[in-house]
């Protein structure tokens, strides 16, 4: 129990004093995860919609793969991205390993199947409902995709938030490709892992609580924004 109360106390101290190290780590965590969510949404939302409305050879295989990859092991993703970005890898010349960009790439790969797969499900249901109307109005594929994405925006928000939740809580991939370098690639999850290994359990727990608060704030802010712009249902 002492560990828990110490953790709460530490979390409270870190937040109230706006500890510079914490602000830097939390800021980088948010930057990396939000960037990954933005990139994965940019690809995953139209991809999910496309798979829903278009028939093409191999569509079923892609659906199965996307569903299966929703549970991609982060360390495996980290390892693959590491091999790609390492000096001897195909993209080694870019010099991205152990940078926030590498962490964003790894997290994007990790959450892309989640966003695309949940998008596909939402859009498929809506497409069943809208199909005849949109076909009768001679809507182009681009107009169909835009209409479905807009009208499914409430459920797509949940898909995006699921992706964010996975990204912000992830440790394995960012540890491997980021390296947990102080003032460069250290984020909340890798800092927690480090402090735990050093035996600083109260600090680790405190950082964990800060991570939880951060996730809560982002979710609450998103829902508040969505309620204002979309109206409550």
């Amino acid at each position: 129990m002492n560990g828990l109360s110490d953790g709460f106390r530490e979390a409270f101290r870190l937040v109230v004093t706006l500890d510079p190290a914490l602000v830097e780590i939390a800021g980088l965590s948010l930057f990396v995860s939000l960037s990954a969510v933005a990139a994965a949404s940019l690809i995953g939302l139209p991809l999910g919609a496309l798979i829903s409305v278009r028939s093409f050879p191999g569509r079923g295989v892609i659906v199965v793969l996307l569903n299966a990859f929703m549970g991609l092991p982060p360390v495996v993703v980290g390892l693959v991205v590491y091999l790609m970005l390492s000096r001897s890898g195909p993209f080694g010349v870019l010099g991205l390993l152990f940078t926030p960009t590498a962490m964003i790439i790894a997290q994007t790969i990790l959450i892309l199947p989640i966003i695309a797969s949940l998008t596909r499900q939402s859009i498929s249901d809506l497409w069943d409902h809208y199909r005849e109307l949109l076909q009768s109005l001679d809507a182009t594929p681009a107009q169909i995709t835009a209409t479905l994405l807009w009208d499914a925006r409430r459920s797509l928000l949940t898909a995006v938030l699921a992706g964010f939740g996975r990204a912000i809580a992830e440790v394995g991939a960012v540890m491997i490709v980021g390296g947990n370098i102080e003032h460069a690639t250290r984020v909340l999850t890798t800092a927690i892992a480090l402090e735990t290994s050093k035996g600083n359990l109260a600090l680790a727990l405190g950082l964990g609580l800060v991570l939880l608060i951060l996730a809560l704030v982002v979710n609450a802010a998103t829902h508040a924004l969505a309620s204002r712009t979309m109206g409550r249902r």
Partner: peptide, 10 residues
């Protein structure tokens, strides 16, 4: 055309 159970957009 208007279908028997018309779809309304959200």
């Amino acid at each position: 055309i208007v279908f028997q159970k018309p779809a309304v957009l959200r």
